[in-house]
Design a protein around this nucleic acid. Structure first.
Lengths: 112, 112
DNA sequence: ATAATTACCTTGTATTACAAGATATTTCAA
DNA sequence: TTGAAATATCTTGTAATACAAGGTAATTAT
């Protein structure tokens, strides 16, 4: 099965933004994987489990996120992730990087 | 040697944008690899040869770019790449995707 | 000749996101 | 009390990207 060029481009462009988006979300309120996926879907930023779980583990190992267990009204307990102080510093830095990227692309698109 | 978390994030965020930027540049005027790298550098979008050459070849194989040889005032001949009609269609599509990504990130960043 | 400059290209590696599937806990109905 | 449904977490294997590092080749100047 072959994917279209456009699908491929959409996929490529999103790369690396996922971490920024997830840190952003968790900076406002703690959340668990299934809920994070639902909320990203609302903003058309589709992410699947196989992407999210390794990312959360990486961010936790870097000290950007931490988590606590909490019982669920139904099913197994939820792993609520929340942002750390270190994570907030990195997020603030990412804001600047993101703004810079938008400016760079804008310059290139419009012809410096 | 270990790179900082921030360097890593900067690198990740840029992924996939390079193709968009290069198609954009070539949509205004044809150019060759060394010049493309120089111009991207001006916009703080650093790209190296090992990234650019495979990308140009991929885009050519997809029919988005084509090229012609031209003698250089000094050194070996230059391979001038230019965008095709198909490339312009895809570029127009990428504009929309890029705008959509900016909107998505903005929604997520600001809390939908 | 040969060194310098300019240019093109390749190989191997780290990282990322995804597809697909495995595992575990709770509730509810038969 | 057994089993299905729902909700969760997590792992493995694969494809793709960007980069570091190095290789090849043509022209000009010394």
């Amino acid at each position: 099965m072959e994917s279209s060029i456009q699908d491929n481009i959409r996929a490529q462009m999103r790369k690396g933004l996922v971490e920024y988006c997830i840190l952003s979300m968790l900076a406002r309120k703690e959340s668990y994987a299934s809920e994070i996926i639902e909320e990203l879907k609302k903003a058309d930023m589709i992410v699947v489990e196989g992407t999210l779980y390794p990312l959360l583990i990486r961010a936790k190992n870097q000290g950007l996120l931490s988590y606590r267990w909490q019982e669920s009204p139904q099913g197994p307990p939820r792993k609520y992730y929340f942002i750390t102080e270190e994570g907030r510093k990195v997020l603030s830095c990412m804001d600047g990087i993101w703004t810079g990227i938008i400016n760079s692309v804008d310059m290139i698109r419009k012809g410096e």
